[in-house]
Amino acid sequence: MTILVTAASGRLGRLVVESLLARGATPAEIVASARDTSKLTDVAARGIRTVELDYARPDTIAPALEGVDAVLLISGSEPGNRAALHQNVIDAARAAGVAKLVYTSAPRATTADFVLAPDHKATEEAIAAAGVPAVIVRNNWYTENYAADVARAASTGVITSSAADGRVASAARADYADGAAAVLLEDGHLGQVYEFGGDVTWSYDELAAAASALVGREVVYQPLTTEAHVAALEAAGLDAGTAGFVAAIDTGIREGVLAHTDGTLSRIIGRPTTPLVEGLRAAVEVEDAAA
């Protein structure tokens, strides 16, 4: 079986490639794609074929899918425009007769009132309408999303949010990558919609406690109103639209969109998901190394 990983130059895509190899796939069975293949030279050096694939350019998609049995469609990073870009990949996958399309969606994408949901809901509906055999993996939050908050807390002693007492079932990016690799390689997943998340939910008070353990000082959680959060983000340099979007994510967290966990991810990857403190420690180390 030949598996194509889209966005393989990104953080999730690279980890999926690593997980596929660790789970027994050979380099010859993997195709790694990116808009800029020069960012995949290290992947190519391992004997993995690399191809150009740009969601916005259908002329790059069909050639990339030639001879491919399974495709991991990693969702794009342009809110509001993702569904149209994903449609190009879905259409090409249907035309190529792909036997399995795995899509990285958002938590409760078809039912949640969440600012991130509409693009993913539209994509899931497009996959169903196309009739491509598929597996939907709805990834909860990445623990790595909070690396910057922890880094700031080292100097401020504060983590702020307008999520109130909302809980988050985050997991490490590597956990989600393992989940994607498992459903790509294994039989028995077609037609399933999986809500992937960490084994344990946490609150922002618990996030602050984890940050305290990592930075060696007391860190407290300071809850904000949505209006105060937007104002703080604008004061930090975000435009009004982006500030409102970020605050709307916290509204979703406050309303419980990310609080679901049922052990599905750990069951599929065959191990517990990465604990919060461990995931944050690794994420902060990566951020420090990149600085």
Rank of each mutant, 00 (worst) to 15 (best):
M1I: 04
I3M: 14
V5H: 13
T6V: 08
A7V: 04
A8V: 07
R11G: 01
L12N: 09
L12G: 06
A22L: 10
A25W: 13
A25C: 12
P27D: 11
V31M: 15
A34I: 11
T37A: 04
V43W: 13
A45W: 08
A45D: 13
R46N: 14
R46G: 08
L53Q: 14
D59M: 02
T60L: 11
P63H: 09
P63D: 11
A64P: 01
D69I: 01
A70F: 04
G76L: 03
S77E: 08
H86D: 12
V89Y: 12
V89K: 11
A92T: 10
A96C: 04
G97M: 09
A99C: 01
Y103R: 10
D113V: 00
A117S: 04
H120A: 01
K121R: 15
A122F: 08
A122I: 14
T123K: 13
T123G: 12
E124G: 06
E125Q: 12
A130P: 01
A134F: 11
V135K: 07
V135T: 12
R138I: 09
N139K: 02
W141V: 09
Y142Q: 03
T143L: 08
E144A: 14
N145F: 05
A147W: 14
D149V: 02
V150Q: 14
V150G: 07
R152F: 15
S155R: 08
T156N: 05
S161V: 05
S162H: 08
D165P: 01
D165R: 04
G166H: 10
R167D: 05
V168C: 01
A169H: 04
A169Q: 04
R173G: 05
A181P: 02
A181S: 05
A182N: 04
L184W: 10
E186N: 13
H189C: 05
H189I: 07
L190M: 07
Q192L: 03
E195W: 00
F196C: 06
T201E: 00
S203V: 10
L207M: 15
A208K: 09
A213G: 12
A213V: 07
G216V: 00
R217N: 05
A228V: 03
H229K: 15
V230K: 10
V230S: 03
A232P: 01
A232C: 05
A236M: 12
A236N: 11
L238N: 09
D239V: 02
D239P: 00
A240K: 14
G241W: 07
A243D: 14
G244T: 14
F245V: 02
D250F: 09
D250T: 06
T251Y: 02
R254L: 15
G256V: 09
H260V: 09
L265W: 05
R267S: 13
I268V: 14
G270K: 02
T274K: 02
L276M: 08
V277A: 07
L280F: 01
A282L: 06
V286Q: 04
D288C: 00
A289F: 11
A290L: 14
